[in-house]
């Protein structure tokens, strides 16, 4: 199964991912409507694109009172807007803040992997976001998580 894989060591903080994401979903340029956000940790000197990790056990899915969130065959955790009542419980439940709300969208939104060809990965100029098979990457992700937890942990908690 393919998943978005983040390589912060390659990220230059240009936010192209935010632009192509908002364009892909709404044909508008608006980082605040993107499902990906680049966070800059100034003191640690890193930039990290934050995207939905399509969790194994998604808190958003668990907490949704109307079962509007489900997992698609390709692994993407997606919203069913016919069911969604806009209560924003999922926003609060996501530990990484990867579900957003925007007044002009008038609904909560999250990454849907662009239906299988995520634009953020496709157009990232440095390869800081990749869409790759998850199995081969579990070691890389684990190492990365530990590395960045250490270097940005202090600043993120401050």
């Amino acid at each position: 199964m393919k998943q978005l894989v983040i390589k912060p060591e390659k990220c230059i903080g240009c936010r192209t991912c935010e632009l192509v994401c908002s364009f892909g979903h709404y044909q508008q340029f608006n980082p605040k409507m993107a499902n990906v956000t680049v966070l800059e940790y100034e003191k640690a000197a890193v930039a990290v694109p934050i995207v939905c990790l399509q969790c194994e056990e998604p808190s958003c899915m668990k907490v949704c009172p109307v079962h509007a969130i489900s997992r698609r065959e390709d692994g993407a955790v997606i919203m069913n807007y016919d069911k969604c009542i806009g209560c924003k419980m999922c926003m609060n439940a996501c530990p990484l803040g990867n579900i957003s709300y925007h007044p002009s969208v008038k609904k909560v939104f999250k990454c849907d992997l662009c239906g299988g060809d995520p634009k953020c990965a496709k157009y990232c100029p440095t390869g800081a976001i990749e869409f790759s098979e998850t199995d081969a990457l579990s070691d890389h992700k684990k190492q990365l998580a530990e590395h960045y937890r250490d270097i940005i942990g202090e600043e993120a908690n401050a």
């Binding site: 060591e9 230059i12 903080g13 240009c14 936010r15 192209t16 632009l19 000197a45 890193v46 930039a47 100029p125 440095t126």
Partner: peptide
């Protein structure tokens, strides 16, 4: 060099930290 830095929407990334 610590890392490269790009301005908004830039694919070149000539900035240096």
């Amino acid at each position: 060099l610590i890392r490269n830095k790009g301005c908004f929407g830039c694919s070149i990334g000539c900035g240096r930290l």
